[in-house]
């Protein structure tokens, strides 16, 4: 199976980096780092076709899965493979800042610490997982990464595009019982992900608890068995859930590298 470096880069830019918006809300260390930051930071591949921006303002972060809406410190990776290697911790090759970025060098030197916080929540250690609130946050953030990752794969992976185009139209909700939720609107091969519950989904998949959700999100669950034993509940337009499954599998494959 040949995976596209460009698609993986898009996953990092559009599904992973934007998690800092949510992490800033729950993590005091992150808030401390960015408390005086009032500028836009844009990560991109050459030409800016794939870009992701973080808008810092008074200790908060707003994520854009596109170019910054205003002037920004831009960090350009030389190519998709380099970006991926950096995010995977396999390379310390720094991205190239633009002129505006050169004036923000002091802040940019701390960006690496911010990005490491994403890893902290997506690949938590046992200590973090033993704290119920932190565990819930890990599941929530991973769900966010998942739905935005599905959008990238469904719309950009050449093998998955035909499959995505054949999906039934509708909104699928993925939620943990009494816990975090995400939803995904699907139409003509395009995906519109969202955080939280949907108003009236065409289909839903509900984990009975955080543990079940976490196991599934780590790709360690026999989903058919879990559904049969009611650890996972599915209702509504099942072909929509079923059809997204291969895209999820592909996402795991990308991120496992």
């Amino acid at each position: 199976m040949v995976l596209s470096e460009s698609v993986l880069a898009a996953i990092y830019l559009k599904a992973v980096v934007p998690l800092l918006e949510d992490i800033a809300e729950i993590d005091e260390e992150v808030r401390d780092i960015i408390k005086d930051w009032n500028f836009n930071l844009q990560f991109q591949l050459p030409g800016g076709l794939h870009a992701s921006s973080l808008l810092f303002k008074e200790g908060t972060v707003e994520a854009w899965r596109a170019r910054s809406p205003g002037p920004a410190a831009v960090l350009t990776f030389s190519n998709a493979a380099t970006l991926n290697a950096v995010f995977q911790g396999k390379s310390d090759k720094s991205p190239r800042p633009n002129l505006y970025g050169l004036f923000r060098l002091k802040e940019l030197l701390k960006v690496d610490s911010l990005l490491k916080k994403i890893e902290y929540y997506l690949e938590p250690d046992e200590d973090l997982l033993s704290d119920p609130e932190a565990f819930s946050n890990c599941v929530r953030l991973t769900l966010y990464a998942m739905v935005y990752g599905v959008k990238v794969i469904g719309e950009e992976d050449p093998d998955m595009i035909p499959l995505a185009r054949n999906l039934p139209r509708g909104i699928v909700e993925i939620r943990v019982k009494d816990g975090p939720a995400v939803h995904l609107e699907v139409e003509n091969g395009l995906f519109n992900p969202g955080k939280g519950r949907a108003v009236e989904p065409c289909a839903y998949l509900e984990f009975e608890d955080l543990q079940s959700a976490w196991i599934m999100l780590q790709g360690e669950m026999d989903q058919f068995a879990a559904i049969g034993s009611k650890k996972v509940k599915i209702r509504g337009l099942i072909p929509l859930i079923d059809g997204i499954n291969p895209i999820l599998d592909r996402l795991s494959l990308y991120l496992s590298g």
Partner: peptide
Amino acid sequence: LFEKAATLIPGGIYGHMSPTAMVPG
């Protein structure tokens, strides 16, 4: 029985008779 099956058989019950094709539970 399904709980036990799921430890021994992929999916517990596979194919068209999988509980996932109905309303599981």
